[in-house]
Amino acid sequence: MELLQYILQNLINAAERGSFYAVISIGYSMVYGVLMLFNFAHGDIFMVGAYIGFGIATLFIGIFAGLLPAPLIFLATVVTTMFLVSWVGVFVEVAGYRPLRNAPRASAAITGLMIGIIFETGVLILLGATRLSFPPLMKSVTYHVGGIYITNVKAMIIIISLLLMVALHAFIQKTKWGMAMRAMSYDFLAVPLMGVSINTIAPLTFAMGAGLASVAGILYGQAYPILDPYMGVIIGWKAFVAAILGGRGSIKGAAFAGYLLGFIEIFVATIFPSTLRDLIAYSIILIILSFKPRGFFGMEHSTKLRL
């Protein structure tokens, strides 16, 4: 019984951690699907999202606290931040990727890295190195149910992440824009000839990825309320691992692999000494990849793979 509680508690921990990996890794996959490139600035877009979210949240709490119910302030913060950070995504595409679209792959691949470093140092210069504390957007309440501890914040993180992914899936499957994106990832040479402009679809994809990352940033600020300019680096790498593990370009795969990564990390630390966590966790992933080199949902063969 006690063991069961222990496992359940860790399942909740893993679902929370995995939610972040999943939502962020989707951004990598979406861009890959359309441009055949990984946007290595994505981890830093997540960081910028968290900082902008911090600014908006502080502003809204300052103005509306007491006037509006907390969930409404939360919603307003999320929507405003998503909108603003989407433009950051568009900026990355237009300033970084578009000029290099026909450049050698290696050059285009490193633009993201450079933009990421520019974001990190930009935030560092603009706001200084002092850590910022993300204000809580809702009062954290801890529930003790059947020997398991869960807070309302944790539950919210898991639920919002799932909702976002379902909404994204619906957008891509059901709308015309989604269809254009899917078509583009199917063949980026023929589709523009059909009147779908890559100059529309690419920024849209970046904007959506950035929007998702910004929500992840706000949720991250609720779970781990300390912001620093380099917070996106490690989580960006790990989400990138999830994107590859899920299968390049597969959104479903990225989400699945994001959760899997969370579960592996948490349970490895639970079973083995925590010192060995990353060593064992990423060895497991290496083994999975050597058996499934294309990831879980990667296309079996693709003639247009250029990277």
Binding site: Y6, Q9, N10, N13, E16, R17, A223, Y224, I226, M231, E265, I266, F267, A269, T270, S274, R277
Partner: peptide, 9 residues
């Protein structure tokens, strides 16, 4: 930033 598995232990 996440210490949940260690702290659960």
């Amino acid at each position: 930033t996440d210490f949940s598995s260690q702290l659960t232990k």
